[in-house]
Nucleic acid binder design. Structure first.
Length: 679
DNA sequence: AATATTCCCGTTTTT
DNA sequence: CGGGAATATT
């Protein structure tokens, strides 16, 4: 839709150079660029996400935006670390002011374009005031490191464009035609940027569906799309109520579900597609049953000539992917997974990137502290904290302390090691002008990281392999963009999203969260975990936006072209404990005539067979720590500890050969031995 | 200082 | 259950 319009504009109305197309993910941007190429209209067009656009603008016009030229983008982990420091700096208890909570609050503030100062000025109560203090401290630390977080990218651009008419005019002239996809998920900062860029010409083409707004939790404001006609009075509104993707029954089910939302503009979807089979709902006993049922269904689907890349499994939380993965491996199904164990989040990868980040931006203290002893080079916690204290007490950067001989003298015995490290950095400094792949190769071999991972790789070879893969990725990057610098590459890797790694062509089934599924389509879709508390998700301490949860399931169902299966489990294990569940209320909202229910109840009741109850030994009264016992296999032993639970008694035993074992006493083949028997 | 071990605690979702 | 952090051990 956006693609076709952009191509049309480029061919008939304007130079592609004047077109800005904003997508929701990098993957969508890449696909759009590709299709644009086929339409012969790609040259010079800007196609990217809001975050990528802002990063680029901040880089190019850094002086106008008031950010350091070589700023580093701090990801969630980096940001958490800085927030922790900020909380400490404010002398607050980390258990009362949890970094995760503070992080979310600051993020929310930034998405609403509230700077630390603005946030502080609207203080209402003590909690807000304290958050404002942390926020201010966080900003100070971040600024000191030449860092910007994800939310800064948007906020900074939005705020400056509001003030700087000259720059805005310049950008407006450059981007005369703006197209935005998934407009229903824009937050205040993104909305502001869009508005400011189209102030003069009002040339904005936005696509979106209020029923698919699922990012409210990160500041997305559904009002942005609802008020579009008011914001752009000249706009032509095209309503797409005909659906070309799904069967009649899938659509009917989705439609009935979303009708449960009260805050909504009525809309009836229709299609000329086939009726199709009913939506299936399956109820299983527990997670493993659900996972293997789906794996079997997928196998069957593939044997019926459905291409694996046309099959997807969605879930509300990433934690549910593990069981599915195991089942898929058992069944021998090839799959790819969005996010989860993200490549760029692995330790070895983050280590290498941290080297580059320090070389490019010496102020990046988070990265510096990460690599100062990685691989281990004899610089321990005490030395590090001395260096940090020295730096902070004199208002300098840790990096500079490393390079000051007089400061280093006061560090103690390990100052030699620190000198070695600084020499290493000095030697590596030259790589920043080389192509990324070369630079990476240099860093990996000279830092000792390769040696470290090679030596420890007997047990697990993947870290070394990941480093190789990183170099390959960088090589590919260099080939595609020979002009790009290391800073560009770091920026790109920082902005990579969960689904970017997925290959739509690969002959693999795709596993992902419902959020990641937005904008995609598959022939056959499975959605697991339709249980109260999971979908709709709820947390005891926070009220849930049930309507957004309903939209989330709506998005999931409407990804499917041919078949949809929803599943739930009667007992769900989470965090090691199994709990009885309640079926999702959403299942009951589906129209009965479009849905086929089935129960995958276990045929043979494996549990609760009465005879395996087990019994305590008749002389239990005599058992205590120190009691001698005999086991038919392990022989003579001594009771180390006994723990009487409500239903079971656990016992730890040490045997003559020194080995220790624990049993549930009711089932253990242990008998008590009297001293005189041993003789 | 480095490694081994235990402890602790889970903000769902993401750029 | 599982990762990361605090803590114990060498």
């Amino acid at each position: 839709m956006v693609t076709n319009r952009a191509a049309h504009l480029a061919r008939t109305v304007t130079d592609a150079h004047h077109i800005l197309a904003i997508t929701f993910t990098n993957k969508a941007a890449a696909e759009m660029r590709e299709r644009m190429q086929m339409l012969g209209a790609a040259e010079g067009m800007t196609v990217c996400t809001f975050h990528a656009l802002c990063a680029r603008l901040l880089r190019v016009y850094h002086d106008r935006f008031g950010v350091p030229r070589g700023f580093t983008i701090f990801d969630r982990d980096d940001r958490r670390k800085v927030i922790k420091k900020a909380i400490e700096a404010c002398d607050l208890a980390a258990d009362r002011w949890q970094p995760a909570m503070v992080d979310a609050e600051i993020s929310r503030a930034k998405n609403d374009m509230l700077t630390a100062a603005t946030f502080a000025s609207q203080e209402t109560d003590w909690r807000h005031a304290t958050l404002a203090r942390i926020y201010a401290s966080y900003e100070e630390l971040l600024t000191g490191m030449d860092g910007l977080d994800f939310d800064d990218l948007l906020m900074r651009v939005a705020l400056v464009l509001q003030e700087d008419d000259e720059l805005r005019d310049k950008l407006e002239d450059r981007y005369r035609y703006v197209l935005i996809d998934e407009y229903q998920d824009t937050n205040a900062a993104q909305y502001t940027i869009a508005r400011l860029l189209t102030r003069e010409r009002e040339n904005l083409c936005a696509t979106g569906d209020p029923d698919q707004s699922i990012y409210g939790w990160r500041g997305a404001n559904i009002e942005n799309i609802l008020t579009f006609e008011h914001d752009y009075p000249g706009a032509k509104v095209v309503r797409l109520e005909q659906n070309y993707r799904s069967t009649k029954r899938i659509l009917a089910a989705a439609d009935a579900l979303i009708a449960g939302n009260t805050q909504r503009k009525e809309k009836t979807l229709w299609t000329e597609n086939d009726e199709g089979p009913p939506v299936r709902v399956v109820e299983c006993e527990e997670g493993n049953d659900e996972a293997s049922l789906i794996a079997r269904a997928v196998t069957q689907e593939i044997s019926r000539k459905t291409s694996p890349d046309e099959i997807a499994v969605f879930y509300r939380v990433n934690a549910l992917s593990r069981g599915l993965e195991e089942a898929f491996i058992r069944e021998g199904i090839r799959y790819q997974i969005a996010g989860g164990v993200e490549f760029y989040n692995r330790k070895e990868i983050k280590d290498v990137l941290a080297y580059l980040r320090v070389l490019v931006n010496p102020a990046d203290e988070v990265s510096l502290l990460r690599i100062i002893n990685a691989p281990p080079r004899g610089i321990g916690a005490t030395t590090i904290s001395r260096l940090v204290n020295k730096a902070h007490s004199t208002g300098r950067r840790v990096f500079d302390v490393l390079f000051s001989d007089e400061e280093l003298a006061g560090v103690g015995r390990s100052s030699g090691k620190v000198r070695d490290f600084r020499q290493l950095l000095d030697k590596l400094k030259t790589v920043i002008d080389q192509p990324v792949s070369k630079a990476l190769e240099h860093v990996i071999s000279h830092s000792g990281l390769r040696a470290q991972y090679r030596s420890t790789s007997e047990a697990d070879a993947s870290p070394a392999a990941n480093l190789d893969e990183l170099v390959s990725a960088a090589t590919a990057f260099h080939q595609e963009q020979p002009e790009a610098t290391i800073v560009d590459w770091l920026e790109q890797t920082a902005l990579i999203s969960d689904i970017d790694g997925l290959d739509p062509e690969a002959a693999m089934v795709t596993l992902m969260t419902l959020h990641a599924a937005k904008g995609l389509e598959f022939s056959v879709v499975y959605i697991v975990g339709l249980e109260d508390g999971l979908l709709p998700f709820s947390r005891y301490d926070e009220e849930t936006d049930e309507e957004e949860e309903r939209r989330l399931l709506f998005v999931g169902i409407t990804r499917a072209k041919k078949r949809v299966t929803l599943s739930r489990v009667r007992y769900r294990m989470q965090r090691g404990i199994t709990e009885r569940t309640v079926r999702s209320r959403f299942l009951d909202e589906l129209p009965a005539d479009q849905v086929e229910w089935s129960d995958d109840a276990p045929k043979k009741p494996k549990r609760r067979s009465p005879e395996v109850r087990g019994e305590l030994p008749h002389d239990i009264a005599e058992w205590e720590v120190g009691t001698l016992v005999r086991h038919p296999i392990h022989g003579l032993g001594r009771v180390l500890a006994m723990h009487r639970g409500k239903k079971r008694t656990h016992v730890d035993v040490e045997f003559k050969d020194g080995s220790k074992r624990s049993w549930v006493l009711e089932f253990a083949k242990l008998e008590r031995v009297d001293y005189d028997e041993v003789g």
